[in-house]
Amino acid sequence: MEVSVFNMRYSRKRSFTDGRPMAEINVTPLVDVVLVLLIIFMVTAPMLQMGIDVNLPKVKSRSVDVNEEKVVLTIDGAKEIFVNKTKIPLTELGPRLEGVFANRLDRELYMRADRAIPYGFVVEVMAEVRKAGIDKLGMITEPPEEVK
């Protein structure tokens, strides 16, 4: 019995493309990456909102769209002052605001103050804001609850 050498060799299986580059896009890794990015954005989006909790006064007024580009000064219930989530003592507020608004064309500041803060303290903060040269000061409030 003879076994031929031809049958024992490996025969190279010819690919479908004959050495040409494959023209198909594998979509599965693309879908995986998009889903992971979607999950990341869904988790991080709630964390991007303004973070200091204050109990704002409720009044009827025109609504103001405060986005991330606006400078927001917040006074919480413990009389702590924050400028865009950065805690600042009252004595340093004027120089810090001058530094924040040094390169800005719009000298507009929005203030959020807890309703439990005494009026006198809010006026002190507003005086420091005026000393820093802020042209416009807007007060942020919440709309009142409607009785049904």
Rank of each mutant, 00 (worst) to 15 (best):
M50V: 08
D32R: 12
K131F: 12
V64F: 08
N67V: 13
V43G: 07
T141I: 07
L56R: 12
A45G: 06
I52E: 03
E2Q: 08
T44Y: 10
L30Q: 00
A45T: 15
R20N: 10
M139L: 15
R104M: 06
N26Y: 06
F6E: 15
P143D: 05
A78I: 03
M50K: 15
S63R: 08
S63C: 03
L105M: 11
L105E: 15
A116F: 09
T141E: 00
P118L: 02
E124Q: 15
Q49H: 12
A23I: 09
R12N: 09
D106M: 07
K79I: 00
A23D: 11
T44R: 05
E2N: 10
V34M: 08
P21M: 05
P143T: 01
V125S: 05
K13T: 11
V54F: 04
P95M: 09
L30D: 02
V66M: 09
M47T: 14
V122A: 09
V43S: 09
V125T: 09
R107Q: 14
A113G: 07
N26L: 07
R12Y: 11
E2S: 09
L137I: 15
N84D: 15
E2F: 10
G99A: 11
V5D: 13
T91Y: 12
E128W: 00
N84M: 04
V72W: 03
G51L: 00
I39P: 08
L48A: 13
A113S: 14
R130D: 12
E24M: 04
G120C: 00
E146D: 03
D135H: 13
P29E: 02
V5F: 12
V83Y: 06
A127N: 14
R107E: 10
R115W: 06
P89C: 01
L73Y: 02
M139G: 11
P95C: 08
L35A: 12
V54K: 00
A23K: 15
I140V: 15
V33C: 01
P21N: 04
G19E: 01
T17P: 05
L90S: 00
V122L: 12
N103W: 04
F121T: 03
Y119E: 14
I75Q: 02
Q49W: 08
R20S: 09
V129G: 06
